[in-house]
């Protein structure tokens, strides 16, 4: 008797669970189709392009397997591959920590109450709106500098020529002037790159419960203590996400040298080589991201909900 009872009970709970999980599959079903059609299939064909020779036919194309010749070419013959990879890597290593620190500081400032906070926030999200398109490369003079006469670039707009003159007058050593101008020229770039990160940090700071600050105020903590003991731990999951986002963003930016090379090869219809290069690059980025993720996630603090 009890056996039968147990059986029916099991069956019922199982069916409820299964029903829920089936609904889960139902909800993500559109994405599964999209993933297969618009991601997995292209990815598989890229792999097959990179190890074949493409013969273009009247309708469509034909693949002929030639092995890993393109990969050997990338590493053994092409001098650009390793050079550009190290270049993008070092750009990323320099940019990412600064972006994270700057955007965290800005988010902490924007999180405080002050007059005109709404206006300031509105302005700080402008890069999110403007910076993802072609307009930013026009503003930075990337397009202009390739064609404009020297000295008439609009990218002068983003440089601190005045400051440089003042420092020269003061008789500061060249090295110091160079460092100062380089960093201050970089401020623009960094601030425009950190729009999304500021957003992420601000969102995370908003979720910190006020009771934590109240408790720390009773204990007599200063703002400085609050920053290190409350904000940093509570925001740390978001630091991880922002870090990964910045790394990927820096590696896959359209203005990145390696990306430019791949795009150039693609438009020149040397698809086999560009597929091989993009796969190499992508595996390199992925390994790096995974390593960073593994290391940083050790320091991340998750509050128990």
């Amino acid at each position: 008797m009890s056996k039968i009872y147990k059986k029916t009970k099991d069956k019922r709970t199982l069916s409820y669970e299964r029903k829920k999980s089936l609904y889960g599959y139902g909800f993500i079903f559109p994405w599964i189709i999209g993933f297969i059609l618009f991601f997995l299939r292209p990815l598989i064909s890229i792999v097959s392009f990179s190890v074949s020779k493409i013969n273009y036919l009247d309708i469509g194309y034909d693949l002929e397997y030639i092995g890993i010749a393109q990969y050997l070419r990338a590493f053994l013959e092409d001098p650009d591959t390793l050079r550009m990879m190290t270049q993008s890597f070092s750009d990323m290593i320099i940019d990412t920590p600064v972006i994270i620190i700057v955007s965290l500081c800005v988010a902490v400032i924007l999180n405080k109450k002050f007059i005109g906070r709404t206006v300031a926030r509105t302005i700080f999200f402008v890069p999110v709106i403007v910076a993802s398109g072609i307009v930013i490369s026009i503003l930075k003079g990337d397009i202009m500098s390739s064609t404009m006469l020297a000295g008439q670039k609009s990218s002068v707009l983003l440089q601190v020529s005045g400051l440089r003159g003042i420092m020269m007058e003061m008789g500061l050593p060249d090295q110091v002037i160079k460092i100062i101008t380089d960093t201050s020229n970089g401020i623009f770039d960094l601030l425009w790159k950190s729009g999304i990160q500021i957003l992420l940090f601000l969102a995370a700071l908003q979720t910190i419960s006020p009771s934590l600050y109240e408790a720390s105020a009773i204990e007599g903590a200063t703002e400085w203590d609050n920053f290190w003991k409350i904000m940093i731990p509570m925001v740390s999951p978001m630091i991880l996400i922002a870090l990964v986002y910045s790394i990927v963003d820096s590696f896959t930016d359209y203005n990145n040298l390696f990306m430019r090379k791949i795009t150039g090869l693609t438009t020149n219809l040397s698809i086999e080589y560009s597929s091989a290069l993009s796969l190499i690059y992508f595996v390199f980025v992925m390994i790096f991201v995974i390593v960073v993720y593994k290391i940083v996630s050790r320091f991340v603090f998750y509050s128990v909900d």
Partner: peptide, 27 residues
Amino acid sequence: FKFKGRDILFGLVLFTIIVPPQTTIIP
């Protein structure tokens, strides 16, 4: 929802963020 392979599938969602569009545009 809890279902089998959810975490792996979500990992694949994150994976699509990492792959640059230049990789898959030709196919």
